[in-house]
Nucleic acid binder design. Structure first.
Lengths: 145, 145
DNA sequence: TTAATAGACTACTAAATCTATATACTTTAT
DNA sequence: ATAAAGTATATAGATTTAGTAGTCTATTAA
């Protein structure tokens, strides 16, 4: 499951993505609209800013705006900033790899191989879906579960 | 990330899958071989047993064995018993669906739609990979990351 | 029929992580 | 100067995960 942190991060980015030509948007505004605890959101936006995805301006009339085109911000990027690894086992992670302590032999481990396949499957979708795509999906009111 | 519980469950099932024609295997044996805390493993095996995947026998000469063909036990089944939902957001879950509290409109939510796609991608692999497949993968020592 | 073996079940604790809040500080516009 | 708004760090509370302990029940074999 995604942490709330990640969910909030995506929501904020989507909101800012819809606000592209407008002046910067304040944390308080995003927090209210998306029902996110303001102080928690502050931390999250800071992380996204420090990772280069947001531009921020202090002082009166300040706020946050996207620092990249919504087409160029992918779910996988956000998840890696806020939640860390995409893979379900550390030994199958690309960016956060580390050995499983109990593992006997990683090279032959069938579990690892299976979860590398799982990782690749979800990575494909996460790496192809951008903030812009999410905004677009909201315009199509047909839900297919 | 998988919980240790789930990882241990998979390891135990794989070990029992390799032991098909043998007499039942004791918890202590599995725990030692796979470096799993014994009492913790007891609970896990109980869950798997109660879900119908294992057969157990008490008393001297007792132990655990698989109650199904390794070909018919899929990763998705195990994950759902030990970790719960496959989806990364509750509103995209098939078996553990529930609404996100902060959500304004689930029907149009682009985040939900995106994560339904993620879910389907990982579900495909998890639903196709069996304990037998994992055992087979261990026989092929070529690792492709 | 008793002792030893091994799982079943319940309760509990410790540690880690996640979520949220508090406080103090810096920058900017007016 | 003052108010707006982000920056940064610390900390508290809640939840989840991991692991432990103890007792009960069933089975086998001497």
């Amino acid at each position: 499951m995604l942490s709330k942190k990640t969910k909030y991060a995506i929501k904020a980015l989507v909101m800012l993505g819809k606000n592209m030509d407008q002046p910067p948007m304040q944390i308080a505004r995003i927090a209210e609209d998306e029902r996110i605890p303001k102080k928690f959101l502050e931390q999250i936006l800071l992380d996204l800013r420090n990772a280069g995805y947001l531009y921020s301006k202090k002082g009166a009339g300040g706020g946050y705006s996207l620092n990249k085109d919504p087409k160029d911000i992918f779910l996988v990027d956000i998840l890696r900033i806020t939640d860390g690894p995409i893979a379900m086992v550390p030994c199958a992670s690309i960016k956060f790899y580390h050995k499983c302590e109990e593992c006997h032999d990683e090279v032959t481990c069938g579990i690892r191989k299976a979860f590398i396949e799982v990782r690749d499957a979800s990575l494909k979708v996460l790496g192809e879906t951008s903030v812009a795509d999410i905004i677009n999906k909201e315009k199509t009111p047909i839900s297919v579960v």
